[in-house]
Design a protein around this nucleic acid. Structure first.
Lengths: 351, 351
DNA sequence: GTATTCTATGCAAACGATTGCATAACGCTA
DNA sequence: TAGCGTTATGCAATCGTTTGCATAGAATAC
């Protein structure tokens, strides 16, 4: 990195003023402290020299770096790119940059990532992988670092978050299956340490109860991770019970894809033999075999609102934390179908 | 951001030494300048206090921020997340962070993004959206900023890049179609300002010439962008010619998806009526209707090597630039089929 | 014991930008 | 013109870290 860029001293030298005057002119909040004629002259010279403030330097002094750490569990999970893009664009509009960290599945690594970001004096953090009980989130709050969670919440309610109405989403999917005539419904959920996994599971049980449908607990499995392979394994486990079922409601789209894979292995067809629903409406699920019926959440809105909440928190640290709950909707595609006569008579003994 | 973190002065005070001594101990390259006993004491205290170096401060002094700018055109294009993840992981292993910028389709915005990164003294840039003639790349090189291009190259050969052997990839796809008996082959390419668009187009023409196949130039269209909608529009334009064809070779997977959409609109089936090939093997193409035959490139390897090349360039700025060319391979799935008798007889007059 | 050489540590300045305080300059009034 | 009040600008220190130079202290040789 060559020293080829103009700095404040260069501008000051050419304008024949002190660097502090240049600084005051370049900051709109202090510009009125300088005479208008001189301010104009300084602004012109700064532009001629292509001067750009160095946020490293100013951040050292002001403790504001215009930097936000964005920690996600897996950028290749199609749910996250739209979120990240929306976050990055919203931050950029306000002069902030996003430092991206993909934590993978290792929590220890995430601790290091966050420490790294703290050392760099990030102005705040957007976290997409918090656990319901999350020491990392706790410690950031304790240190006064603004934090916003995306699509997750923690049990400590003083943390800002943008989430979806998971209860409504699961209920929409459940009612859809009921309306199609399904009664023997399996559930494949996600890890219970995540609020989405926990809330969607409880919502499933409640929807069933409210619909007066008796759920066979052997048909309810919470997978270790929200992945295709975990979904596949969970369905295989359900298949081994030999129980009757005609539909599977899953806690996210990747789990549903895993169910598709398992059905392929068993020479079964969705939705002919088993109807399947997902959650998230991640990109491209409309192109799958079959196109996935799923609960749509607005990924972009998640990102935009997360960035907005965080910027507010940065500007006004003492303001109370907010939870924004977005409303999902059901998108019916080809993975769910009316319970047919053959299914109703013998069920689908998947063994 | 509260001032709650230990700094070098805190460590020095507790150790009873000067801050410069602490600095020397904490840098492995200068540790031997301090006595072993004192070094051990300082390291222990630094750990007790949870000290972390602040790269903003050290970067100001040393002009090394351990920060890399990563500029991509669209994080929601499934080709990029695996690349970004690989980049981010490789950088993280060496103590660098990735500043992510998603430029969208606006070149002006990209100029601002890069200027923003320069102001923050990034140690280098990884660019995934360079044009063949690219003033932004030129200016970075002129300023001595290390740059590595991903999946793109520029005509100025002194720029480091990780690319794929596009000629081989296109030839593999072309030969595959020839082997299946296709002779009336359309081509939908990408923007010619991108090296991938240009090189794949020329490779298509050359493969046809070498195979002794006469290509109808009305069946060759280079789209404005590498998007589904551009691919769809391009195929619609080809359909309007009323020319016979039995296969479409596209320059990337998104264009191929656009062709799928256009075929749906025309009540035609792939591969029954038209075989289609893509390029990149982006995630999930194996789940589409039909599963896409495509040229596989290793996205993760692109990212890993880009990060590696850049780190080398940062460490050794005067070393000659390198181009790394990765070998693609064909993945045959369900979007291509043998030319059938009915097709061969009447061709597919798509009008 | 004294002089010389080597080693370990401290000092001060640098990096780029900001800001509280001091004061020079300007404007107004008697 | 002198005195007072206000405004505009400069000064110096800060932020956290690094590093060339100076020198105190230790070790060695005579």
């Amino acid at each position: 990195m060559l020293k080829s860029r103009a700095n404040i001293k260069d501008v000051a030298r050419r304008a024949g003023v002190h660097p502090s005057t240049v600084s005051r002119v370049l900051n709109p909040a202090t510009r009125s402290m300088v005479s208008e004629a001189l301010a104009k002259k300084i602004l012109r010279i700064a532009e001629e020299l292509g001067y750009r403030r160095n946020p490293l330097a100013s951040g050292l002094r002001t403790r504001r770096t215009y930097t936000v750490g964005v920690v996600i569990p897996d950028i290749t999970n199609p749910v996250f790119p739209p979120i990240v893009r929306a976050v990055e664009h919203a931050l950029d509009e306000k002069g902030y940059i996003a430092i991206l960290a993909d934590s993978g599945s290792k929590r220890r690594s995430e601790k290091a990532l966050i420490e790294n970001m703290k050392a760099r004096q990030v102005d705040g953090l957007i976290l997409a992988a918090a656990n319901r009980k999350d020491h990392l989130v706790d410690s950031c709050i304790d240190e006064g670092i603004p934090v916003v969670l995306v699509n997750r919440s923690v049990e400590q309610h003083s943390v800002s978050a943008v989430i979806n109405d998971d209860e409504l989403g699961i209920d929409l999917a459940f009612q859809h299956l009921i309306d199609l005539g399904h009664r023997e419904i399996a559930y494949i959920g996600g890890p219970q340490r995540a609020s989405t996994g926990y809330t969607r599971y409880r919502a499933f049980l409640r929807s069933a109860k409210q619909a007066g449908v008796n759920i066979d607990r052997e048909l309810v499995i919470n997978a270790r991770e929200f992945t295709e392979s975990a979904g596949q394994a969970a369905f295989q486990e359900i298949a081994r019970t030999g129980k009757n079922l005609s539909a599977v409601l899953t806690a996210n789209d990747l789990l549903a894809l895993g169910v598709f894979d398992a059905l392929d292995d068993l020479d079964m067809k969705c939705p002919r033999d088993i109807s399947v629903t997902g959650f998230n409406d991640m990109p491209y699920v409309d192109r799958f075999v079959p196109p996935l019926t799923t609960v749509h959440i607005s990924l972009e809105e998640l990102g935009v609102q997360a960035a907005r909440l965080l910027l507010e928190k940065i500007e006004n640290p003492d303001a109370p934390s907010k939870q924004l709950r977005l409303e999902p909707r059901l998108i019916v595609r080809g993975s769910t179908a009316t319970l047919n006569a053959a299914q109703a008579k013998s069920g689908n003994r998947v063994a």
